[in-house]
Simulated assay, not measured.
Amino acid sequence: MRKVWVVGGAAVGLGLSFVMLLVVGVYVVAGNLLGGVASAGRGLAKGAVPAAYQSLVQKWGNLCPALTPALLAAQLYQESGWNPTIVSPAGAQGIAQFIPSTWATHGIDGNGDGKRDVWDPNDAIPSAASYDCELAKYVKGTPGDVSDNMLAAYNAGAYRVIRAGGVPAIAETQDYVKRIRSLSQSFAAPVSRIDPTQQAAGAIAFAQSKLGTPYLWGGEGTAEQGGRFDCSGLTQAAYAKVGITLPRVANDQYNAGPHPSRDQLLPGDLVFFSTDRSDSRAIHHVGIYVGGGYMIDAPRTGAVIRFDPIDGADYFGATRVTADGAKALPTTV
C-alpha cells in the first residue's frame, strides 16, 4: 500500500497552493529559456508497449530505416489498441487490422511456425512492419521525409505519394501522418530533455481548487455527482480546463505525450501507478505532479482529493501531456 500524506489545516493548504504555482512558473520559464524539444532514439519508453508485444515491436520496428519501434507501436495502438481479436466495421482483422485481401498478399510467417495467421501477433506485428518497409521502398525516391511518405503511402497508397511528390494534399492522409507522428512520441524513449507543458499551471490550479473534495468512483465532477471525481476524472477535468481533451481512463491517458524520467519530472506531469510495472495497460491510478515528490490525486473511496507522495512500489512512470499528443489518441481503443 502506498504511504499517504494529507495536508492539515487550511493555512498550510493555501500556502502550498501558492508555492506550487510559483514552482510551475519557474519550471515553465526555465523550459522556454532552454528551448529545444525532445529527440527520440530507436528505443521504446518503459512499459508503453504491453509486455507481451514489447520484444516483437522493438525487433520488427527496426526492420528498415524509415520505421522505428515507436512508429510501429503508434500504428498498432491506433489501429487496435493492442487487441489481437478485434474486427473493424470494414472487416479489418487482428492487432494490425489487416483487410483479408491485403493479408493474403502481405502477411508473413513471423514466428516461423509454417503458418501465416492474422490473429497471431507473432505473425501480424512482423507483417505490419514488413508492409511498412515495403511501402517505404516504393516511395524511397520521393521528396520529403521518408517516414512521413511511408505513413502517407500506408494511408493513401504509394502511387498517390509518388504522384504528389510527397505527402498528398488529402486531409485524411495529412491528419493520419500527423497523428501517428505525435502518438509515436508517447512510445519512444526520450534521449534528451522534454519541454514543459505550457498549460501545466492551469491544470494544477484546477486540481488545487478541488482539494478536500470527496472521492467518487466514476466521478467526473458533474452536478449530479456533487462535483466529485475519481483519479482519472480529476486529471481529465484539469486538462479540459486548459483546452486539452484527455481520454477518460488512466491507462489511455498515459499515451497523451512523451514520458519524462523520474528525475526529470516537472509540475503538471501526470504520474501513474500500475499493478504490473512492465505494462501500461495495468495502470490503476493517476495524479498530477506538483513538485517536491508530491502529486494531487483523488486516491480512493473514503478519501478526499489531497496531496500524496509519488514514490512507492507501484510507481510506473509519467507523461508530459501535449495538445498534439492528446489529439492523436484514438477515440476508441
Rank of each mutant, 00 (worst) to 15 (best):
W5C: 01
V7M: 11
S17K: 14
S17Q: 10
L22T: 03
V24M: 04
G25P: 02
V26Y: 15
L34V: 14
L34C: 00
G35E: 07
A40I: 05
L44C: 07
A45C: 10
K46R: 13
Q54M: 08
V57C: 03
P65I: 05
L71Y: 02
A74P: 06
Q75F: 03
Q75T: 05
E79Y: 00
S80R: 10
S80T: 01
W82Y: 09
T85Y: 12
I95L: 13
Q97V: 05
P100G: 10
P100R: 15
T102H: 09
H106S: 14
G107F: 11
N111Q: 06
D117Q: 05
V118D: 05
V118G: 09
D123E: 06
D123H: 14
A124F: 06
T142M: 05
P143H: 14
Y154K: 11
A156G: 14
A158K: 09
Y159V: 13
R160F: 00
I170G: 03
R181I: 00
A201M: 15
S209Y: 02
T213A: 06
W217Y: 12
G227F: 08
G227Q: 12
D230F: 11
L234Q: 07
L234E: 02
T235R: 03
A237S: 13
Y239Q: 09
K241C: 03
I244M: 09
R248V: 11
Q253V: 11
Q253T: 09
A256F: 08
G257W: 03
H259L: 05
L265H: 05
D276L: 11
H284F: 08
V286R: 01
Y294D: 01
T301A: 05
G302N: 11
V304F: 07
D308Y: 12
D311N: 14
G312K: 02
Y315F: 15
A318L: 02
T319L: 07
V321E: 04
G325F: 06
V333N: 08
